[in-house]
Amino acid sequence: MVKEIERAGIPVVHVATVVPISMTVGANRIVPAVAIPHPLGQPDLGETEEKQLRKDIVEKALIALQTDINEQTVFSDDKE
């Protein structure tokens, strides 16, 4: 799905838990997510902390969308 959206000319960031699958399907901008049943959440955290975590991930996704890349790139913590 990411590939077809990108092919249409819209920059797309894939927020995905299983990064190797995202690489295989051909996403170019990849942001690792938290867990399969809650990619952008963490039920163990309090409401405020959980929302902050989600915001951090979305902000990372927005940074990915603004980054010039030449090849598949994973925007993980150590890069930002």
């Binding site: 959206i5 894939h14 995905a16 838990t17 990619p39 969308l65």
Partner: peptide
């Protein structure tokens, strides 16, 4: 199809989430 609709609606960027 989704991409066509997005383009028609003037969407400029997409965040796609996967579980």
């Amino acid at each position: 199809e989704i991409a066509e609709n997005l383009l028609a609606d003037g969407v400029q960027a997409v965040i796609l989430t996967s579980t």
